[in-house]
Design a protein around this nucleic acid. Structure first.
Length: 111
DNA sequence: ATTCTGACGTGGG
DNA sequence: CCCCACGCCAGAA
């Protein structure tokens, strides 16, 4: 229930991001109810890489920019993963970001 | 306990 | 469109 830690909540939402779709930290934060703490989502994602298999590459900032790319292995692993899903990325910027954007608060019903 | 940081967001200029 | 400053809160040192 709501007893889940903030980190686990972020993981639950991230796992439900559809293939080829992306979302923003703020969208997840808003869905979790901590809209003012969008940063915390990113922080949780940082820890996710060592906890469970979380598609953190599908989570970007509101600009659709791969801000966390630097935290992935190599230098462009995040972009590679996105392109592998059919997401076009140029200069760390998702092209059709608004089109493939997936808002948990809108498309995903409660959890 | 205090202090700083950070994969962000919003607002104002 | 871009750039700057502030808020926000959990975790690490």
């Amino acid at each position: 229930m709501s007893e889940l830690n903030f980190f686990e909540k972020c993981y639950q939402v991230a796992k439900q991001i559809p293939f080829g779709r992306v979302t923003s930290y703020g969208a997840i934060a808003k869905y979790l109810g901590t809209a003012r703490s969008a940063r915390m989502v990113g922080w949780a994602m940082n820890a996710s890489h060592r906890n469970k298999d979380i598609p953190a590459h599908r989570v970007v900032n509101r600009k659709g920019l791969l801000t966390g790319k630097h935290h992935f292995q190599g230098g462009n692993l995040m972009q590679q993963l996105l392109e592998n899903e059919g997401v076009f990325v140029v200069d760390n910027q998702i092209q059709n970001f608004q089109e493939i954007f997936w808002d948990p608060s809108e498309e995903l019903q409660r959890r």
